[in-house]
Computed example of a mutant assay.
Amino acid sequence: MSKVSKRKTLPAATEEATTRRTKRVKASPPPQYVEEQRNLQDLWKAAFLVGTEWDRLDSVYKYNWDFRNLEKEFEEGGKFYGIGPTNKVYIFAATETASTALPELLPTLAAVVAPRPPSMEIAINAVQREEEIVPLKHMKMDWMPYIPLAKSNLPQIFVMGCTQRKTSLKQMKVERLMKFQYCVPYIMNPKVEEEKERDADVEFFFPREPQPPLNCEFNWEVDEVETYTDNLIEEEELSPDEKEEFMEILKEEVKKSKRKMMDARKKRMENPNYEEAATYYGNKKLYKIYPVQTPDTPMIENRCHYVNRYYRNAHEII
């Protein structure tokens, strides 16, 4: 006798719920559109903001600064289009105050068009300290190649970058830490070197107790030691009892200044690379780039050609 299979019957409520589950369709999320990154959009971020305090770097990067003006100069008809293979573009960055009313910092770029790097050294200019010119690597900096998303028709681009990690700053000595914010991109400028040989200004502090030290500025080509001292006494900045001591210190500072001037001239005359550096400085092209003004960034009130004491003024502002 054959067995007849019995179909298991679900309760009506369970069967209805199952039917509903099979018909439920999950709604598709709305499409998300991500703006495609432009070829050189992050170029400005690749350059280290030389001379900017470490604790203020984040305040610069919190804004979405727009350097489309720089990007366009690499396109056909732009200043950096078709300049290779002999010439390359070397870019370094710094910061300026956005306006006199706002303490916000804005990034500025300088672009040098030349066959080789402007310098493999950097200057350290601290207040009341001698100028130092040290190799870039001493401050963990270098000219680093920038790799764009697309390389077609682009010249070689190098940025002044820094490999110093921010996380290790706490272990760094204060003197070493401060040197980073005193860094200034350097180039051997014949005019600057010759000015060092003509610098007759002397600045020093004369100790006074219990008063704070007296800050003195003296030009040994214009001023006379005793007359200058008598004027300070007349202005009650100096007491008559301090005259002789002050004059001795001032005369010593003048000797140091004259010795420094002679050393600068000797150094220039003995430098075998001086003439080459002078030719390089005269032939290079220097551009300064400010970000494009946008509603999301602080108002940029002033734009100037001045780059720094070594590069002086840019040929053009972009």
Score class of each variant (00 low, 15 high):
L154I: 01
A110W: 01
Q128P: 01
N125L: 10
A101F: 14
A111W: 14
R116V: 14
P145M: 09
T108E: 06
T100H: 01
P135Q: 13
E132R: 05
I147T: 08
V112L: 12
R116P: 10
T100I: 04
L149N: 03
A123F: 01
L109V: 09
L149A: 04
E131W: 06
V113Y: 01
A101D: 13
V112C: 15
T100R: 12
K137T: 14
I147M: 13
A110D: 02
P115S: 02
V127F: 09
L136K: 03
P103D: 03
I122E: 00
L106I: 15
E132C: 03
I147P: 03
I133C: 00
V112P: 07
P155Y: 03
P148A: 04
M141T: 08
A126K: 10
L149V: 10
A110T: 13
I122V: 02
M120R: 05
L149Y: 09
E132W: 11
M144G: 08
L154R: 05
A123P: 00
S152A: 13
S119L: 07
R129L: 11
K140Y: 07
Q156C: 12
Q128R: 14
H138V: 15
M139W: 09
L105T: 09
L102Y: 06
K151H: 11
M144E: 11
Q156P: 13
A126W: 09
M139K: 07
M120K: 06
P117H: 10
P103K: 03
P118T: 00
M120S: 08
A126H: 06
H138C: 12
S152W: 10
E132M: 14
E121P: 14
Q156G: 12
A150L: 08
S119F: 14
P148T: 02
I147S: 12
R129P: 12
A150C: 10
E131F: 04
A150K: 09
T100S: 05
P145G: 08
